[in-house]
Amino acid sequence: MNEILETLPGTTTQSLQSDEPKPEAKTRDEFDVEIDGTVGQPFVDNPKMSSRNCDVFYAEKQAIFDVNVDIGRNEIIAMIGPSGCGKSTYLRVLNRMNDTIPICRTTGTHTLDGEDIYAKDQDPVLLRARVGMVFQKPNPFPKSIYDNVAYGPRLHGLTSNRSELDDLVEASLTKAGLFKEVKDDLQKPGTGLSGGQQQRLCIARAIAVDPEVILMDEPTSALDPIATAIIEELMDDLKESYTIAIVTHSMQQAARVSQRTAYFHLGRLVEVNDTDKVFTNPEHQLTENYITGRFG
């Protein structure tokens, strides 16, 4: 990795630190050429999910270049990076949500518990029940709170009668830390809740189908600080039972909740390391530039 650092032209680094925005834009293009492989510890023993040689294209445009990374069991891995760096796109590779975009094409090998999730006989619909997702904007269905949580279990036939379903809904809402607030209003519309409650409802909805991995795409970017704090606490509890990958724009959030952090830049995975290391002693110059706020 010292080689990589050395290959970075000194002029580029300097101009990045300058205050003028225009040369900076130019140097980003130069970096684009220079990122070569990922520094840090992208791989772990016995990973929950892993990706090798992942490329993603939107029509002719390549959005992700050769990403190789493992996601460990029961860990929270944070994905950070400037806007448009491909972190959300990569997250959506992991539950094949990109399949719903007709022009999107994904290559490489991706596994869940060693099983190829892009194999021909793999059903993306079933995969998404195992790898749940929480979106940036809370998106409860325009149904009652109960029906929102019961949506997945009903789809997949997880319960055989009403009382089992009731129990599952209650358990999911409890895990998402929402049950106390809504237990008397289960038949009220989910869209009537506050933003933070809606997002916890979406988390409850995701964990109701008992997934193995939960992907969170900037889950708190639309929420106020108090709601954010509640969700961050919730993530800490959820990590006991689930593996969580979270995309976030907030470096403080990444530092607070995650064990490992991956830094994406212009479609490339630049660095993966323990969160402490990334935020105190990053290996890559680009990571340091980003977390110290020089760009992004």
């Binding site: 949500m97 719903t100 995969l127 998404r128 029940a129 997702m133 979106f135 904007k137 269905f141 949506y151």
Partner: peptide, 25 residues
């Protein structure tokens, strides 16, 4: 689109999404 994403993300098929989320909405 967030409604469709939410439903697909729960592991619903296209027609399930249409019947249970899009048509009611």
């Amino acid at each position: 689109q967030a409604m469709r994403d939410g439903s697909f993300g729960m592991g619903a098929t296209k027609s399930e999404t249409i019947r249970q989320v899009i048509i009611p909405a």
